[in-house]
């Protein structure tokens, strides 16, 4: 069976700097990949290329047989790739619902006619979306579900991260990219968020996840398979236990003893 996401020879050059160097990465349906590597190794660049924020220099990207190489962010988003950001990109002045709705807008009726005159369709879609957002947020924290129309900025860091994940999930993506969900959180908060992730993992068995993380504990608990990047190259691929035993990975992270 062909994988959900297949990147081959994916290369991203910024002038003379090769940020991604002929990456071959495959992600199967329902698989969770832990993507690790030192700072500057190309993890976030990989996400930015996958979501169309950067145009890759060479290679091939396919999502379920659909060619996504160098497509626009909009096309890629509509093809079913959703993500969160390392630094929160919520609209803090707007309500939780508005933030989550953004994740579904690509599939909703955005014509001026139905916004201005034929409101029936809009209202139906709105009711459905409110229901869906309520169900989704309730799974993470009932307090969010009960305050769907409060500004996102009035929630704690961990709840904001949860709202971001809900925004990425509301459009029923096929591939979810999580960029350091534990960044800036305490150990307890990280653990709580991991519990959430594992819980919805079971409810969405087909969803493929790529997770960038520095917390090895998180990687160990969540990922089926790990990929290590260094200087834009893949230096390791395999299960977590093999990862921590791998000499090249240790050298990349801790520096080599000559």
């Amino acid at each position: 069976m062909s994988p959900l996401l297949a990147c081959s020879g994916l290369t991203m050059r910024f002038g003379g700097l090769t940020a991604l160097d002929a990456l071959d990465i495959r992600v199967g349906k329902g698989e969770t990949i832990g993507l690790v590597g030192p700072n500057g190794s190309g993890k976030t660049t990989f996400f930015n290329v996958l979501t169309g924020l950067y145009k890759p220099s060479a290679g091939a990207v396919q999502l379920a047989e659909q060619d996504l190489f160098a497509r626009s962010a909009q096309e890629i988003g509509r093809a079913g790739v959703a993500r969160t950001f390392q630094r929160s990109r919520l609209m803090l002045d707007q309500t939780v619902f508005d933030n989550i709705a953004l994740g579904a807008l690509g599939r909703l009726d955005l014509s001026l006619l139905s916004a201005l005159v034929l409101r029936g369709r809009f209202r139906r879609q709105l009711s459905e979306l409110v229901e869906r957002a309520t169900a989704l947020t309730r799974r993470f924290n009932p307090q969010i579900a009960a305050n769907l129309f409060k500004p996102a900025g009035s929630f704690t860091m961990i709840d904001r991260r949860r709202i971001e994940i809900c925004r990425a999930l509301v459009g029923s993506p096929r591939l979810l990219l999580l960029d350091e969900p534990s960044a800036g959180m305490t150990h307890e908060e990280t653990r709580a968020l991991m519990d959430d992730l594992l819980a919805f993992r079971e409810e969405m068995p087909d969803l493929a996840i790529v997770l960038v993380e520095h917390e090895m504990d998180v990687i160990r608990r969540i990922s089926d398979r790990c990929i290590v990047l260094n200087f834009g190259r893949k230096i390791f691929e395999g299960p977590f236990d093999a990862l921590i035993a791998d000499r090249e990975v240790q050298t990349a992270y801790l520096g080599g003893a000559q």
Partner: peptide, 17 residues
């Protein structure tokens, strides 16, 4: 909602289609 998203964060808005 779309207009607000475009104003507040072009990156997030375009990633979500």
């Amino acid at each position: 909602v779309a207009l607000d998203a475009v104003r507040s964060d072009e990156v997030a808005a375009s990633v979500f289609g």
